[in-house]
């Protein structure tokens, strides 16, 4: 998980390039703020000890 604002900015810029997003200077503060919020949610969620058998519930029917 990113630990510093500078980490968040770097991750946002690098992953955005990876997925083909072009972020302008007016996008970066808002995107970084939202990414940091989502990363904090993920940190909470990833710390939860799920069992190997806890699989998602897909509705895909072949």
């Amino acid at each position: 998980m990113p630990s510093k604002d500078s980490d968040v900015d770097r991750i946002v810029r690098e992953v955005a390039a990876l997925v083909g997003l072009t972020l302008g200077p007016h996008h970066l503060p808002g995107v970084a703020e939202n990414y940091a919020r989502l990363a904090a949610q993920a940190e909470l969620l990833m710390a939860f000890p799920l069992e190997e058998g806890d699989e998602p519930a897909p509705v895909y029917v072949p």
Partner: peptide, 18 residues
């Protein structure tokens, strides 16, 4: 824009937690 940057493991964990 921020939602497009999430690692797959976070989203899969979210579905498993669901």
């Amino acid at each position: 824009l921020a939602g497009a940057l999430l690692p797959a493991a976070w989203v899969v964990q979210a579905q498993r937690f669901r």
